[in-house]
Simulated assay, not measured.
Amino acid sequence: MDSQKTKTLGIVLILFLLLLFYKCPIQSVTGLPCPGCNMKTSLYYLLHFKFSLSLYYHALLIPTIVVFVWIVFNYKNHEQTKKLLMIWAILMIIYYIYRMIVYFPNNPMMYSKENLIYFIFRHV
């Protein structure tokens, strides 16, 4: 196996493990949901063919999967990958702002009291 395939396989494995065992560092520190929050829940419902629930928890899951697959299989085309990542990042930011305005602090964009800042101020 050549070096580039090994790197790609390693990245895929790390991302897969993060998807399974990931705890959001932004929410762990601030208690606020991040732009990717609820993506794992959305994936769960997508895999169980509950598409409306999947879209409710994170509507950009499917575009994120498409971008990820594009990067894995077209990693040599740097210009198109950069443009695709820029478009994806802008969409994620716009969707995050929308979700924070419409849903926060209710489900699915909930504030978590199990965070570092809340812990520090509770004990000071």
Rank of each mutant, 00 (worst) to 15 (best):
K40I: 12
Y75C: 15
N38E: 12
Y118R: 15
T30H: 01
H123K: 14
Y56P: 03
V12E: 07
V66W: 03
S28P: 03
L46D: 08
V102A: 08
L60C: 07
Y118F: 13
Y96M: 01
A89E: 00
G10W: 02
N38Q: 14
M109Y: 09
L84F: 03
S28F: 14
L43G: 08
P33C: 12
K23L: 08
Y96D: 11
S28Y: 11
L19F: 13
N115A: 15
E114F: 07
I62C: 07
Y103I: 03
L17P: 00
E114S: 13
Y57A: 01
H48L: 00
T41V: 13
I101Y: 10
L13N: 04
L55E: 07
Y111V: 13
F21V: 08
T30Y: 02
F51E: 04
E79K: 15
V29F: 15
N115K: 04
N74T: 02
I97D: 00
P63A: 02
K7A: 12
Q80F: 13
Q80N: 10
K76P: 11
K5G: 07
S3E: 11
M86G: 03
L61A: 00
V72R: 05
L116F: 15
I93G: 00
F73M: 09
Q27I: 09
L60F: 13
L85F: 09
V124Q: 11
C24D: 06
F21P: 07
Y103S: 05
N38D: 06
E79T: 10
S42D: 11
